[in-house]
Structure formats: structure tokens, C-alpha cells
Design a protein around this nucleic acid. Structure first.
Lengths: 201, 201, 201, 201
DNA sequence: TCTTAAACGAGACGGTACGTCATGTCTTAAA
DNA sequence: TTTAAGACATGACGTACCGTCTCGTTTAAGA
């Protein structure tokens, strides 16, 4: 009498082990980088699942990649939601840069590359990865404005772009996303603005 | 005494017509977007060249794509190097955003995606596309600092990142690079900074 | 309880239609001779099968050629196993010469040529074509010896070589395998021997 | 007035060194067997000659192969033209079998295979290799008939076929051309004939 | 001595076929 | 009805040779 049980049709139920092993294999392949090709074929080989099974559950390679990345890699680190907003931003950006310097950076770059030709993957990445992080950042910025640390009337989206954009640019195009000092320089620049004080009045 | 003559080894010289037709075909295919697959085979078919000829001159697909993009698409528009530096930046960023909203945006996004798994392509893109544009921007910023429009002591690279990064982020991840108003919001934000004036002294 | 059933693992079973159409296409191409190139690509094109499917089942071109030849061309004509052994040999050799004068001759020559650089093909040709025919001839020779038509104590293999060898030599090296008269001359020569009767006692 | 001199137009005369080095390279490649591919490219590489030069002088691969084989390999061993004709045939056939057991066998087999799709090569092989050898054998047979060792009235060509054919058959189709004992068995069989003596009167 | 014409190396070029790989669909038997 | 296994058509991959071509250089005979 499982009244609250999942909607359950006839036939053999879906095997959760299989699902997990596919996701794990996908993550491992993506993680191992350029040497191991990220291929449905390879995922099937490594996971022991049949290609058919994979295609049944994920429409495209990118969708699988993104879900694998989000499911396994992403135990989202919580950030301090109290204290100085500016310090909070600094911490969050430095953490992201550190992440991007490691394997996760190559992963994210690969997923974004995939997403260029796979709208599903793009959507999954935005919803599953980008939005949550931006929401966190947005909350900090709101708090900063409310608490008087940041200028009131800022467009939160634009501020997020100005702070996060450089990291993604450096991740995708340049060879590295920058070290802590680079992040500090970035935050300082955006905090202070670039206009000369003289022309401010 | 052809002192300026090209270094010229033995053997039949390279056919420039062929080279051009390959680059043109590559550009067209890249340009036509997602429907036409960008494939060495397709480039060979369309250009009338043999696959071997393509492989003789370009090590990877990305290298060919980048060179095609740069050679044919890129008659770099000159920007005003006089007048207000801030207005100059605004103009340049809006022009880039407009470019990114069109086919060129998909092209650049595709090339950057290719570059994630092709160091040659990455290098070619940076050297041929990114560096010249950043050099232009850097000159404007230097001029702005010298002329008193911008704060002295700015790190030019960081400023470039803060201004360009958001456009690339929006190009690659979000659906569009933003309209003129968005660019204006971005420039305003970076110009004024985000710190509250109260906390400035 | 299908005790005689084929060993049958999981997965989709091999499609017999495809197999047959590949063999037929291969045979046709081989049959059409020098104008149509005998190529895996061509076989794939004509049969409608994929190259991979062909490679899955035949390791080399020669193996495919041989099997095609044997499967389709070779409804082996039965020879009279009664009556005069000498007459039987004559009939069989003349039939082979007639076969070799036609398209089949070019086919066999082609397969033997392929077999020079393809051990698989050589083996297939020997097992599938040569051995059965030699077995027939050997039986006739045995019968001839038993019945008193042929000298007892003959080495059957050697006799086969002496009778068949010339036909293959003429097929491969000379322009034609010889007409009926030539076969008669050959059989007469081998029957009577070439030593002078004077030196026989 | 060099009336017998080669027809000689203007222009640079053909370089004999080059010719020789091409033939030598071709022979070596053919000689090294299955591992080294016998290819115009490979001949050019090894000989240091340009492909053009090779094509200028030999119309097909087979023609080159045959000429290389004949020029370099073939210092035709002289056979005793006196003494017993039967012994002479035995010696010549055993020598050929020995030759066929070695690298030369693979060479001849390869050339005959080439000749199946190259009439030029076939002609060159027949004229340059086969005919001289058969002429020698024919002379011995004629001598044998004249001297009373062999039956008078034999068709020389047919006898040659009966003696040589088996060796070629074994070379091309079976794994080996047979040892000395096999040659003896063959010669004995053809000498004595295979018909039973009883049926001779 | 100078011209001329062919030989020669080098290597680009349009092709064809190679044998392999990944894709996405399908068919089967077992769970 | 899901799953593993694997056949299958498709089509791109990157490579090897093919035979032709266009160069610049070399070599001799004839003007």
C-alpha cells in the first residue's frame, strides 16, 4: 500500500545502479581530460551499460555531460551569507578561480564548448550550475547595497557579469583563469571604478 | 637581385588559388551555422580541393577554422583613436556586441569551442583575433589615463577583462551578448565602480 | 529443446540478407572484370551494406572474394564416378579448361593473385575450391589403379599435379588455358609417358 | 658516323646511374617481401629518384618490377647441354624448385600476380623470363628425342607444360614448390606415364 | 659561347581507397 | 518494460599511393 510511492507503470523498473554507473563513468571520462575521449561509446564501455540505455535517458551527449558534472562534482560549497558583502564576493570569486585552475576548469570549459552546439546542454548548464551560483552572488550584492557597503541602485545582473565574466573569459580563451592576486585586482577595479575622481564632480 | 624575393624551395610552388578556395569554403561552412556541418570532408567537397591538400597545410580543423575566420571575415574596423577615451570604449564595446549578436557571434563562439580541444586553434585565435582588439582597447585606456579621464594606475589588462569578459560570458553561456543598453549599463557600472561613496573615505 | 541450435549469444543476430547481398555484390564486381575495380568501397556501394559490416565478417578483401566466388559461382558440377577412369579424367580436365577459358578463369586467376599477399584468402581458396576438386580427381585415379587402367603404385598427388599444373600455368602466365585438343595432348603425354619404349627394358 | 648508335635527339641524355638505382631499389623492395610494400612511392624514396623519372621510363608498376627482377636477379645459370637429357631435365627442374623455395619464389609469385592485371608485365615476364627457360628445356627435350632417350613425336610444348606446370601450381597455390624428392617423383611419373602396362598392347 | 631541349629532383595537387571510429537505430533474449 | 549485447547504415576521420602537374636546376649537343 505505497500510496506515496512514485508513479509506477508496468514492466521492469528502472535500474538506479545503472543510472549511477553511467553518470559516474561519464564524469570520470570528462574528468580525465583530453586524453580520454568523451564519447557515448566510451561511456557505455566504461559503465558496462548498453548504448541504448544511455540514449533512452539522455537525449544528447551534452545533457549527459552536464548532468554527470552537476550530480557528482557539485556538492555546492556554501558561502558565508553574513558579514562583509565585499569580503564575501572576494571569497566566492577566489574559490571559483581556484576551481577553474584545476580539473573542474577544463570540465566547465568542455561543457560550455559542448553547449555551443547543444541547446539542451546549454539550458541544463545554465539552470543547474550558473543560476544557483549567480543567485548566491546576487544575494550578497543585495545585502551589500542594503547594508551600505555597495552603491545603491546597482543593476545586479550587470555587476554579476562584470565580476564573473572575466573569469570565464580567461578560462575559455586564455590559458588560465588567474590567481588570487588577479582576482583581487579585478575586485578592486570594479569596486573603485575606473573613472578619474577629478571628473566625478 | 631579388633581395626581397620570397624564400623559395624546390618543387612545385603552392597554389594560392587552392588555398583561397579552401579558406573561403571553410568560412562559408562555418558561417552557415549549425545546419551545415563543419567538416574537413565538407570543406574539401565545397572547395574542390583534395583532403590531402587541406591536411598538408592545416594541422587541425580548428586551425583551419580560425585562419578562415581571420582571413576572410576580419577586415578589422578602425576605431577612433582620438577624442574622448570613454566614448571610444563605449563605441568599441557596442560594435563588438553588435557583431556578436549576428553570425559572427556564432562563429566566434564556435571557434572558442573548437579551441577548447585544440591548442593550435586557441593560439591562432588569441594571436590573430584577441590580441589586436585588446591592443586597441589598451591604447584607448592608456590615453584615457594620460588625459585624465580615467583613474591613473589602473591595470590595463584587468580593465580589459572587466569590460570584455561580460560580453564573452554572455556570448558563450547566455543566449545573447546583450544590446546597446546593456553595454551602457556595463560601462557605467565599471566606470563608477560599485562601492558606496560613503565608504570611500 | 533445440539441441542442434546454433550457438547463440545475446544481441541482434546477424542479418543473412545483408550477408548474401554482400557476397552477391562481391561476386558481380569480380565477375565484371578489369573495368570494375574490386574494392571494399565498391562492394559496400553496390550491396548497400556499410563498410564496417563487411569488415566485421571478412578480415581481408581476398577472403571476401574467395567466399563470394565459392558461395555463388560454385555449384560444383558432378562428374561421372563410374566408367573408364581415363575418360573421366579427360572429361574433368576439359571441363576445367572450358571454365578457365571463360570469366571464371579470370576470376580464379584474380583470386590466386590476391592470395599471394593474403594467407587467409589462400587458405580459403585451397580449402573451398582446390581440395574438393582434387579429391574428385584423386578418387578417379584410385579407381583407375584399382581397375587396372592406370599403373599401380602411382603417387596420387603427383599425378594430380602433373595433370592440373599445366592448366594453372597456362591460366596464370600464358594468355589462355588451352583448348580441348591441348588437353588431349596433355593427357596423352602423361598417360603414355615421355621415355622412349626402347629404354624401358 | 655512329650508324649503330642509339637514336639520340637533343637534350640531356638519360642518366644510367639513376636507372640502375631505381632498378636496384625496386628489386630490394620486392625482395624484402611482404613487410615492405612495393610501391612507386617507396621505390622513389629508396632510390632517391623522383616519381616523375620512374613514370617516364616504366609505364606500370609491373613493368618496373619485372625489369628489376630480370636485370638484377637473373644471371641465368647455364645448364649442361650435353650428356643425358633426362638427367639434364632433372637437374634443371630441381634447380628451379630450389629457387622457388627461396626468396625468388615469392618474387616470381608476386610478379605473376601483378601480371594478372597488367598485360605489359605479363608480356615482359614471358619474354624475359619464361621463354628463355623453356627454350633451354625444349632443346634438352629435342636432344633427348634425337638421342633415343625420349619417345619420338612428343609435343615439346606439352611436355614443358607437364614438367613446369606442377612447380608453378605449387608455387602459387600451395605453400611450397616441393623438395627434390617431389621433383623426382614428378619426373618419374611423367617419364613412365601413368597408363597401366597391361593396357599397352 | 650560347641556345635549346630533355632529364631530373622536388613536391603540390585532385583523387580513390583504405581501415577505424562514433553515431543513433534496430533487433533479440533475459531479467 | 528495461536492460545488455551487438548488428547495422551512415559518414567523418586521417593516411597511403596513385598518376599528373609545375617548378628550378642540370647536362649535353648543336648553332
Amino acid at each position: 500500500m505505497p500510496t506515496l510511492a512514485e508513479e509506477r507503470g508496468p514492466g521492469r523498473p528502472r535500474c538506479q545502479d545503472t543510472r549511477q554507473s553511467i553518470l559516474r563513468a561519464a564524469y570520470e571520462l570528462f574528468d580525465e581530460g583530453e586524453d580520454q575521449p568523451f564519447t557515448i561509446e566510451a561511456v557505455a564501455r566504461r559503465s558496462g551499460a548498453a548504448k541504448t540505455t544511455i540514449y533512452r535517458w539522455w537525449p544528447t551527449k551534452g545533457a549527459l555531460a552536464t548532468e554527470a558534472f552537476l550530480t557528482i562534482a557539485e556538492k555546492r560549497s556554501a558561502f558565508p551569507e553574513t558579514g562583509s558583502a565585499i569580503a564575501g564576493l572576494r571569497i566566492q570569486l577566489k574559490a571559483l578561480a581556484r576551481l577553474f585552475r584545476g580539473r573542474t576548469g577544463r570540465l566547465v570549459a568542455g561543457i560550455i564548448a559542448e553547449a555551443q552546439s547543444d541547446p539542451e546542454a546549454r539550458k541544463a548548464f545554465i539552470e543547474g550550475y550558473l543560476k544557483p551560483r549567480r543567485a548566491t552572488a546576487a544575494r550578497i550584492i543585495q545585502r551589500g547595497m542594503a547594508g551600505g557597503e555597495l552603491r545603491p541602485g546597482l543593476d545586479v545582473e550587470t555587476v554579476c557579469d562584470a565580476l564573473y565574466g572575466p573569469l570565464y573569459l580567461r578560462l575559455m580563451v586564455r590559458d588560465n583563469p588567474g590567481d588570487d592576486a588577479a582576482v583581487d585586482r579585478l575586485v578592486d577595479t570594479v569596486l573603485e571604478g575606473i573613472k578619474a575622481p577629478a571628473s566625478r564632480r
